[in-house]
Design a protein around this nucleic acid. Structure first.
Length: 353
DNA sequence: AAGTCTATCAACCGCTATTAC
DNA sequence: AGTAATAGCGGTTGATAGACT
């Protein structure tokens, strides 16, 4: 025996709701509460199934629904939460008062997801898309010669937290290329990557032997996420006088770690220098090297706007200061800044252009 | 002006989780 | 403990409007 349907679908209306139907539903719920959704349509005089009524109420008619465009802060919260929770839309919606899971899901799929893709960010992993990392062009670029390789080494020496996946990818790619033009140089680059990665690992372990990345507290979920102890997986840490990374306030990290390791924050690094809000699209600007390949998915960076002590997402409400810029371009710019990385001065980016 | 394409989002579908009995 | 009813969730669809040719 199969499960009986939630309602008798014969003769029930489907499709868009009319204002009259909306009014009936509102009137009934305001008067009686929704009670059992199964019996509600009949009692309210609606030719709809209970499920349809529930959806209409929760997604559209509820009085506490906030309509209109998503603010930057909301957008930012969605991105952060999505990096932790994935497609748990209801969980994300719970952090955004007035927004429904359906609305957030739609907004993600139609706006944020596309924007991230456009910027070369995988919307699932929130990491740079390796399929867009055009290593072949990198290898054939002016960067890729012996003298400038030193620059890369210096760069990597400062920011060498290479994601093992990237290394594996590079290994695969390069090993497949060793039959081609520059097998020696390919190998050299790979060795550089690995050496610098190891160098960094030992550096972190030497300087911060007591650091236990397993104890990083996720301020939003209020639970400890088990992170891999391999420092390869440790999210890079932003420490820049211009850039506030307030997660330091929330995460129990040794302060000397943030002070001594001048490493850019992971993919979402906010440049708060108001004079430097230029759009840097990692794809169109061919600046893939700016990506930090660290895996930070289990972390959240609470403050992503201009104030170091921005309220946590739970405090997000109408009293929050929203930047309600409305054009897509502005949001693109905003997102680009989210994805902009602080390059050490030592690295001359122009050489890569 | 007409046809086509694209983006958006409300609504639906099917499944799982929870609750009540 | 088992079963059915109900609620909730996430993926997908389809109608619509606007942009484009």
């Amino acid at each position: 025996m199969g499960r009986t349907p939630c309602c008798d679908k014969n003769g029930l209306k489907k499709g868009p709701w009319t204002p009259e139907e909306d009014q009936k539903l509102i009137d009934y719920i305001q008067k009686h509460g929704h009670g059992s959704w199964r019996t509600l349509p009949k009692n309210a005089g609606l030719q709809r199934c209970g499920k349809s009524c529930r959806l209409r109420w929760t997604n559209y008619l509820r009085p506490d629904i906030k309509r209109g465009r998503f603010s930057f802060e909301e957008e930012e919260t969605i991105i952060q939460l999505h990096s932790i929770l994935g497609n748990k839309w209801s969980a994300i919606a719970a952090r955004l008062p007035g927004r429904t899971d359906n609305e957030i899901k739609n907004y993600w799929n139609t706006h944020i997801r596309k924007r991230l893709l456009r910027m070369g960010i995988d919307p699932v992993t929130h990491s740079p898309r390796l399929d867009l990392l055009d290593l072949s062009s990198l290898l054939s670029s002016p960067l890729y010669n012996q003298s400038q390789l030193n620059n890369v080494s210096r760069f990597l020496g400062i920011q060498p937290l290479i994601n093992p996946e990237f290394l594996r990818f590079a290994t695969t790619l390069l090993s497949s290329q060793t039959d081609n033009n520059n097998p020696d140089l390919d190998l050299h680059l790979l060795q550089n990557l690995q050496e610098n990665n190891q160098l960094c690992n030992s550096r972190v372990q030497t300087q911060f032997p007591s650091f236990d990345s397993n104890q990083i507290q996720n301020p939003i979920l209020n639970e400890t996420h088990l992170l891999q102890t391999n420092v390869d997986q440790f999210p890079s840490i932003c420490h820049d006088s211009q850039t506030s990374c307030a997660w330091q306030d929330n995460v129990a990290l040794p302060s000397n770690l943030t002070e001594n390791l001048n490493i850019p924050m992971s993919n979402y690094c906010y440049n708060n220098n108001s004079s430097d809000q230029s759009l840097v699209d990692p794809v169109s600007e061919n600046s893939n090297l700016q990506y930090n390949n660290c895996n930070y998915q289990n972390l959240i960076f609470p403050s992503v706007l201009s104030t170091p002590s921005s309220p946590s997402p739970t405090a997000l409400n109408s009293s929050s200061t929203y930047i309600n810029s409305s054009t897509e371009d502005e949001r693109d710019s905003y997102c680009s800044n989210m994805l902009k990385f602080e390059l050490p001065d030592i690295l001359d980016v122009n050489e890569f252009m």
